Amino acid sequence: MSKPRIAVIIGSTRKTRFADKPAAWLMEQVADHASLDFELVDLRDHDLPFFDEPASNLWMPSQDPRAVAWQEKLAGFDGYLFVVAEYNHSITGALKNALDQAYKEWNRKPMAAVAYGGVGGARAVEQLRLIAIELQMVPLRNAIHIGGGDFMAVSPMGGNAPMSAIEDHLKGSLDGMLAELTFWAELLKDAPKA
């Protein structure tokens, strides 16, 4: 039996984004995971238009080939782990648009998050969880939050230290999130989708 495949989706597309640093750290942490396979999916690599379909692909096939390509990419995964920046107490516009470009592909799959910002991206994760429920994902309780002093220690706007400088603060959250993600990904891997 193959291991569930998890997309690690970088949810910011700004040239000056911080997301690359925690995403690289996360990929190092999960490189040899015993139960899950992880693949980095960067929204920068997907030329998504603003959502302009007549309806969600739950109701009718999407017309834009870029949206269809995105849906096909997502369909190959059994769960999603978002690297989330907090913009004005929510997720980025790029991530919201990417979520809207698909529907069926998200269904009955777990969703986890690594977030960063002033309060560890907590408000963005809460917004993401609400969207995930509507898309019939299973949002996890556990998440990794990089906030406050830890964020300023590793951010280029602060100390720009390596992620290893705060790794001991994140390890418990990482372990809890991965255990929960493994449980749900294995449970839902063969569940019928919408």
Score class of each variant (00 low, 15 high):
103 Y>G: 09
78 D>L: 03
176 G>Q: 04
59 W>R: 09
189 K>I: 06
158 G>K: 14
21 K>T: 11
136 Q>C: 10
168 D>I: 12
86 E>I: 03
138 V>R: 06
114 V>K: 00
121 G>M: 07
81 L>W: 05
75 A>C: 06
162 P>H: 02
140 L>W: 01
107 N>V: 15
8 V>H: 01
25 W>K: 03
172 G>W: 04
145 H>S: 13
146 I>N: 10
47 D>E: 14
115 A>H: 01
164 S>C: 05
23 A>P: 07
188 L>Q: 11
76 G>V: 06
49 P>M: 11
2 S>V: 07
96 K>D: 07
164 S>E: 10
38 F>D: 09
97 N>I: 10
159 G>A: 07
69 A>N: 11
50 F>G: 06
86 E>C: 01
69 A>Q: 12
171 K>I: 12
68 V>N: 05
84 V>A: 11
104 K>A: 14
143 A>P: 09
28 E>I: 01
20 D>E: 15
125 V>S: 04
181 L>W: 04
50 F>W: 14
194 A>W: 08
134 E>F: 02
188 L>W: 07
40 L>G: 10
130 L>I: 04
90 S>F: 03
46 H>E: 05
82 F>Y: 11
90 S>E: 03
10 I>G: 06
124 A>W: 00
107 N>P: 11
167 E>N: 14
139 P>E: 00
36 L>V: 09
163 M>T: 00
48 L>H: 05
96 K>T: 13
162 P>W: 02
137 M>H: 02
55 A>F: 05
46 H>W: 10
50 F>Q: 10
153 A>W: 00
43 L>F: 04
102 A>I: 06
179 A>D: 15
3 K>G: 08
15 K>P: 09
86 E>K: 02
151 F>T: 02
167 E>Y: 01
178 L>R: 11
83 V>D: 00
13 T>M: 14
11 G>E: 04
125 V>T: 10
1 M>C: 04
127 Q>F: 07
139 P>T: 12
95 L>G: 08
35 S>C: 10
174 L>V: 05
84 V>M: 01
5 R>M: 14
180 E>S: 14
167 E>V: 02
78 D>H: 13
40 L>H: 10
67 A>R: 05
166 I>D: 07
107 N>Y: 08
94 A>Q: 01
15 K>T: 15
22 P>S: 04
42 D>S: 11
194 A>D: 15
78 D>F: 07
11 G>K: 00
82 F>K: 01
139 P>H: 07
120 G>S: 07
111 M>K: 03
76 G>H: 03
43 L>I: 09
162 P>N: 04
145 H>F: 12
190 D>M: 04
61 P>S: 11
184 W>E: 01
71 Q>T: 12
148 G>A: 09
192 P>W: 03
63 Q>I: 02
130 L>G: 15
